[in-house]
């Protein structure tokens, strides 16, 4: 039973890929839009049918005409609902990675077709359901989708659905789009101890750099260039002279986070631990490097370096 469903799903996706191939920028047209009555629409049709039967049986032309009117309205509503979606240009915006278990951010842009308004367009994407969006005065709206992640690695959320029931709520037109968007999901950071015996870089380094931020080393007379955060206000209260606190930073000797340093055997746990330490070390502005099976990132610091490391962890 399950396998049949799987098979159908596979078929369906294949068919969709053929019909609406993944692209960065898509204009919605009849090839890409599906349409079907909503439950309310079906209720409406039932009402219409009942009126039709009543019209026939009471031999009442006007009730018959009324039911014809409702039917016509339904047909027009199909076209209008379709028209409300068609012509919109959907393009991929940027994405933001996330740690496993958190939500990754995907940005989609909808731009208005030239000559008509679009009302109440919703987006749903693997568990995410957007607020309605209107393209009336504004030329472009941005949908920010926060998608829950679970697994580390490259995250391709696949197709999302853009849909609308405007104007009557009788029909729903929708499209399944794949804008070929992806992002990385980093391992969930988890604190595991590192094997400090085996590493020469787990203790503080030898070189002391002045004006570091880590350890308090003494006071000196305030210098105009010193940060106000460093002023020892207590000392000022006692002596009436401004002193700056002085700290020492330690220049780590290229601290290297090694695959083998993590004392757990499970691969994912190891990655989680490395992720944790990368984040910890980033906070301290410490230069660090990363050594993974097959990948070595030379020590460095800064946002870009951190990202490189996390990317490597995500893809390991």
């Amino acid at each position: 039973m399950n396998s049949i469903r799987e098979m159908f799903r596979g078929r369906w996706e294949l068919w969709l890929d053929k019909r609406i191939p993944p692209r960065n920028r898509v204009t919605l047209n009849q090839k890409r839009i599906f349409i079907f009555p909503t439950w309310m629409g079906l209720g409406y049709l039932l009402t219409d049918f009942l009126l039709f039967v009543a019209g026939v049986n009471y031999d009442n032309t006007m009730i018959l005409n009324f039911s014809f009117f409702l039917a016509s309205l339904f047909v027009v509503s199909i076209l209008q609902t379709f028209s409300n979606l068609s012509g919109i240009v959907v393009s991929a915006g940027h994405t933001e990675p996330a740690f496993a278990g958190a939500e990754a951010k995907f940005i989609i842009h909808l731009s208005k077709s030239k000559h008509k308004d679009h009302h109440s367009i919703y987006c749903s994407w693997s568990g995410f359901r957007s607020n309605p969006h209107n393209l009336i005065e504004q030329q472009q709206v941005t949908i920010t989708a926060l998608l829950p992640t679970s697994k580390r690695g490259k995250f391709k959320p696949g197709r999302f659905k853009l849909y609308t029931e405007f104007p009557f709520g009788l029909c729903k037109s929708w499209t399944w789009l794949d804008l070929d968007m992806s992002t990385l999901v980093y391992p969930e950071p988890r604190e595991y101890p590192l094997d400090s015996n085996r590493t020469d870089s787990s203790d503080k380094g030898n070189v002391i750099i002045r004006d570091g931020q880590e350890d308090f080393s003494g006071l000196r007379v305030f210098n105009a260039s010193d940060s106000l955060h460093t002023v020892d206000w207590k000392a000022y209260a006692r002596r009436g002279v401004l002193y700056s606190k002085q700290f020492h930073g330690y220049q780590a000797q290229s601290r290297l986070l090694r695959w083998s340093d993590v004392l757990v055997s499970d691969k994912e746990c190891k990655l989680s631990a490395l992720c944790f330490w990368v984040l910890e070390l980033s906070k301290t502005n410490h230069p660090y490097g990363l050594e993974l099976p097959g990948t070595i990132i030379t020590p460095g610091s800064g946002k870009q370096h951190e990202k490189n490391c996390l990317d490597a962890l995500a893809l390991a």
Binding site: L73, H119, S120, N131, P132, N134, I136, E165, F166, P167, F168, G169
Partner: peptide, 12 residues
């Protein structure tokens, strides 16, 4: 009535 239906579905 149709206008009411449209208003129901308008979100702006």
């Amino acid at each position: 009535i149709s206008a009411a239906l449209i208003a129901l579905n308008m979100t702006d």
